[in-house]
Design a protein around this nucleic acid. Structure first.
Lengths: 288, 288
DNA sequence: TCCGGAGTATAGTTATCACCTATGGAATTC
DNA sequence: GAATTCCATAGGTGATAACTATACTCCGGA
């Protein structure tokens, strides 16, 4: 059974003639005859009674034609559905962001996007890196905005932004007036840091370790603003990515000069997967 | 779009691999690859993300596959429906009979049939010839049991039975003891006859006319039994087909010897049309 | 009863295309 | 880094749907 055979049969049923059906289907009449014979042979039953003057559906034909029409309709529906999916500006995109980036970058990313694609359905998920990586893998999110380092061969990483780290010191700290400083100058200080699981905590510790500094941790929190408050209160010092600086009057922010003391923000997507128009638009938006 | 392409896509969606799908579909893997690429090109969208290890449906693919499955199912349904129609012993047959045959032949025809095909749906219509011919043409009946002559080129006639005519005389009629008689011996008699429209009336009159007898009609009725009653009461004489003889004690039945004084019963069907198994069985049943 | 017209089937040819085998190339595993 | 596992590409072949030309069948009119 082939689609063109169904088209032929429907055309014959509608026009009541092989010749007119052939004309409508833009084929020669013998081609159409042959294909109908072939289909009848395939089905093991005649679909039409060929009379001299006209043609009539047999009982089997009357039973078959509605199916044929329905199949052809469904074929068109399938085609239309696919066309929809790839052209639709009302598509969905789900984006995951880690907590140490979300409040600083996402507002900027989403504002322009929502204006440009008002019919799009944008969903944002804020979770820590391992959760987001898993979400990428099981397709519950399409794009994740994360910080390096990331070692997952199944992810494709698109660098978005590299920023220096800053030391946060209480305003009366001896180094509070410096233009910049190196991590090793902070040896022996108490630190306030993000809780375990936040990748920025790992990044900070790694930077210190590289400078041969072992940070003593006096306080932990889940958000930068708490850390900054603690620094202002004299509990310890901290490290921040540039974007998290909030100019608390009790603190001074000093750029860390170590070459490795940077954070790189990337967009991560599952390697090899494809994206709908909306997802592509979001990805393009965050890269510029 | 082709059926085999849909089969391939479904197989890939189920097995998660082009190679395994090719195996299941009994084709070489490159053939399957080509057909999928062709379909994707046709649809204007990728259906699968080809990763190194495995294969995943794209958004478009997820939308497409259910349609594909449904189309394939419907194709099977169409095939099954047709197979059903041609093999079904629960089919329908509608038979038309004229009133001058119905009571005598139909019981015999239908008894064996109903026993042999208890699941069949047999419908019997009793009407005069022109109505039945029209019913054959508009397919509201499948088979008609009629009497000759019939001049309709669109009908195919199958002779079933040829019977002599009998004269019905009151038992005290001068010819009541004869073994046979010719129509011209009835010249001058009063006749009782079927009403206009019954073909047996036409046949009787035609037979008389051929014998140069012009029947004078003293009484008309719609059924043979009334005619026979009238003959017994001495109103006139009549003509009957053999099958209508009922041995009324007030009558004598004398065979008419004229060569043309016969009735031929035929099965009539629309020329060129096809029949389901049940219809064929009925036709076969009435011919033996 | 024969002819012409309308309609479908058959014959023979051509071109397309689905299939095959062999091979290339990318990703992953050991 | 070699082996393995996939999918894609290349080139050749056979099946088949298309075409043109023609035969056959039915039907209405002369």
């Amino acid at each position: 059974m082939e689609f063109h055979q169904l088209r032929y049969v429907c055309a014959i049923a509608e026009t009541g003639s092989f010749s007119r059906a052939a004309e409508r289907c833009q084929v020669a009449q013998p081609s159409l005859s042959q294909q109908v014979l072939k289909l009848e042979d395939d089905l093991g039953a005649k679909l039409f009674d060929r009379l001299g003057r006209s043609v009539r559906l047999t009982e089997a034909g009357r039973a078959f034609v509605p199916h044929a029409r329905s199949i052809l309709n469904q074929m068109e529906a399938a085609r239309a559905t696919v066309a929809d999916k790839s052209a639709d500006v009302r598509g969905s995109v789900a984006v995951g962001v880690i907590p140490t980036i979300a409040p600083f970058l996402m507002p900027r990313y989403t504002a322009g996007f929502a204006k440009r694609y008002p019919e799009a359905n944008l969903r944002i998920v804020e979770e820590m890196t391992p959760v987001l990586v898993e979400s990428l893998r099981n397709l519950s999110i399409d794009i994740a905005v994360l910080a390096l380092p990331l070692r997952h061969k199944d992810l494709e990483l698109i660098p978005l932004h590299t920023e220096p780290l800053f030391a946060v010191l209480p305003k009366d700290h001896p180094r509070a007036g410096a233009k910049s400083l190196s991590l090793k100058e902070l040896r022996g200080e108490s630190f306030v840091m993000l809780r375990d699981g936040h990748c920025f905590r790992d990044l900070s510790i790694a930077a210190c370790t590289h400078a041969h500094v072992t940070p003593r941790i006096a306080f932990e929190s889940g958000q930068f603003s708490s850390l900054i408050g603690m620094v202002a209160a004299g509990v310890g010092i901290s490290l921040l990515p540039e974007m998290a600086i909030d100019r608390n009057p009790g603190c001074r922010y000093i750029r860390v000069s170590d070459a490795r003391a940077t954070r790189t923000v990337v967009a991560a997507v599952l390697r090899g997967r494809s994206f709908n128009r909306i997802q592509q638009a979001f990805l393009a938006g965050i890269q510029k």
